[in-house]
């Protein structure tokens, strides 16, 4: 088994109102110096050894992310 991380982020040109709301809240809470926040999704998958990178990319591109509005990155990490 291996652990695979998939990070999904809104594309830079797509408005991210959730990230903006977080960014706007920070100064109100007394945290200064944060100029921008983007909010995305982080998936952790436990993957059998025979699942290849092409399959993982397909999972990310066709299901976990919507490439119309989101970018994705697949990483194998040490469990």
């Amino acid at each position: 088994m291996a652990r695979v991380v998939v990070d999904v982020m809104p594309k830079p040109e797509i408005l991210d109102p959730q990230g903006q709301a977080v960014a706007n809240a920070l100064p109100r809470l007394g945290f200064d110096g944060i100029t921008e926040v983007r909010q995305g999704k982080h998936f952790e998958l436990e993957v059998a050894d025979d699942v290849d990178d092409a399959t993982l990319a397909k999972i990310a591109e066709t299901f976990l992310a919507n490439p119309v509005i989101e970018d994705w990155v697949v990483r194998r990490v040490d469990a």
Binding site: P10, I14, L15, P17, Q18, A21, N66, V68, I69
Partner: peptide, 11 residues
């Protein structure tokens, strides 16, 4: 159909 629907701009 092309495109996608996202969170309302004012949340």
């Amino acid at each position: 159909l092309p495109g996608a629907l996202t969170r309302n701009s004012k949340l």
